[in-house]
């Protein structure tokens, strides 16, 4: 059981769907949505929120700085 649980908040309207955060996530939490935002991009979203540890790799690699990461110690 993971010691930390994390949560990722993506600003969907600013996301350009570049897929870099999806690749950077070591836990496979993120994926691109089937829906598109106002500009027609498949934005990133948490597909498996239970696997997130809040490592913030997605936030680091995001070129548009649209990702906010939270982490909580659950032990």
């Amino acid at each position: 059981m993971a010691k930390f649980r994390g949560a990722v908040v993506v600003d969907a309207e600013k996301c350009k769907g570049c897929d870099l955060c999806v690749v950077a996530c070591p836990a496979g939490v993120l994926s691109l949505a089937k829906e598109v935002n106002g500009k027609g991009y498949h934005y990133s979203e948490m597909a498996r929120p239970e696997a997130c540890t809040g490592c913030a790799n997605c936030g680091l690699v995001c070129p548009d700085a649209v990702i906010t990461v939270y982490r909580k110690n659950i032990q």
Binding site: R5, G6, A7, V9, M46, P49, E50, G54, A56, G59, L60, A65, V66, I67, T68, V69, Y70, R71, K72
Partner: peptide
């Protein structure tokens, strides 16, 4: 979004956000 995820999204748990 599960209830637990909403519980994590609080200011005190913030680890990364866009710099001002």
């Amino acid at each position: 979004m599960t209830v637990e995820t909403i519980d994590i999204i609080r200011e005190e748990n913030l680890v990364y956000r866009k710099t001002p």
